[in-house]
Structures are given as structure tokens and as C-alpha cells.
């Protein structure tokens, strides 16, 4: 009887640990992302380990996300030295459905950072993995793949990246 009790206690404890690790919050590991770029090549979040990564969840159909792209482009340009030095990267994860619209938006905003999407709209598993309820949404992940900030925009985002990379 004692053994059974212990068994359930262990299961409960490990489940709890697992659930905590899956939660999207600072200090937890960022769930892996392995999705195709427009050319079909799979890009993974783990391949960007060693860099500070801003994961930008967006879509061409989302007006505030589209509005934010020039700001992100300015941020990327400002951090170009760190990008070249392999210290910073943006990973654009699109919740689009239509490939043509997605590619058009990338071209229109001259987005130079890697872009991925499974083109499944809100059915994309990445929206559940990251608990996304609304767009735009972003997560900043450190060199070890640990979440360090969630959903920063505008000046707050710029200041966070500046401060982090100046360390």
C-alpha cells in the first residue's frame, strides 16, 4: 500500500514539474520551434542557441503586427553589429494561412531575419505551445534557451534588448 502511495506521489510531483516547465514565463525553457521557412527549409529555435533571440509571433492579416514590422526592422538595424557577431537574432513566427500573403508581407517590409510558418493559422501547434491568445506577441529567449521576457513592445522592447546586450 505504501508503495502505491509513493508511486502516485512521484507521478504527481513529476507531472507538476513538467507542467511548470511548460508554462510560458521568465525563467522557464522556451518550447522548441521547428518550422519551415518560405523556401521549405526547417529552422529550429534550438539552432539559435548562444544568441539572444526575440521570437516575434505575427501574421500578415494582423494590422498591429504589420505596423510593428518597421519598428522591428529599425531595432534589427540598430543591433546589426550584435547580429553579425552572433549575439542577437529575431525569429519571425507567422500565424498566417496564405503563403502568398505571408511572402508578400516579408517582401513589403524587407524583413531580413529568419521567418517560419506552418501556415495553419490559429490551428498551428505553436500557438498552443506558447499559450498565445492574441497577436502581436513575443518572447525573448537567452543564450541557453531560457525565457527572459514576454510581450515587450516599443520603447520597452528596445530598452530591454539594448540593456541586455550592453552587459
Amino acid at each position: 500500500m505504501k508503495k502505491i502511495f509513493l508511486f502516485f506521489l512521484i507521478i504527481l510531483f513529476t507531472e507538476n514539474l513538467f507542467a511548470q516547465n511548460n508554462e510560458i514565463k521568465a525563467g522557464n525553457p522556451a518550447p522548441e520551434i521547428a518550422l519551415p521557412a518560405p523556401d521549405g527549409q526547417i529552422i529550429t529555435l534550438s539552432s539559435l542557441k548562444g544568441k539572444l533571440v526575440l521570437i516575434d509571433f505575427w501574421a500578415s492579416w494582423c494590422p498591429p503586427c504589420v505596423k510593428e514590422q518597421p519598428e522591428l526592422n529599425a531595432l534589427y538595424e540598430k543591433q546589426s553589429k550584435n547580429v553579425k557577431a552572433g549575439k542577437f537574432e529575431i525569429l519571425g513566427v507567422s500565424i498566417d494561412k496564405n503563403k502568398e500573403n505571408w511572402e508578400k508581407a516579408i517582401k513589403r517590409f524587407k524583413i531580413p531575419w529568419p521567418q517560419v510558418s506552418d501556415l495553419k493559422f490559429w490551428k498551428s501547434p505553436v500557438t498552443s505551445d506558447y499559450g498565445i491568445e492574441d497577436l502581436p506577441f513575443n518572447v525573448i529567449v537567452d543564450e541557453q534557451g531560457i525565457i527572459v521576457a514576454i510581450n515587450l513592445h516599443g520603447k520597452k522592447l528596445e530598452d530591454f534588448i539594448d540593456h541586455y546586450l550592453d552587459k
Partner: peptide
């Protein structure tokens, strides 16, 4: 009110 994921899927 939110989106098709939260309110349907």
C-alpha cells in the same frame, strides 16, 4: 471575442 482558437478550437 478573442479569436477562433480561444472561442472555438
Amino acid at each position: 471575442p478573442k479569436n477562433i482558437k480561444a472561442n472555438w478550437l
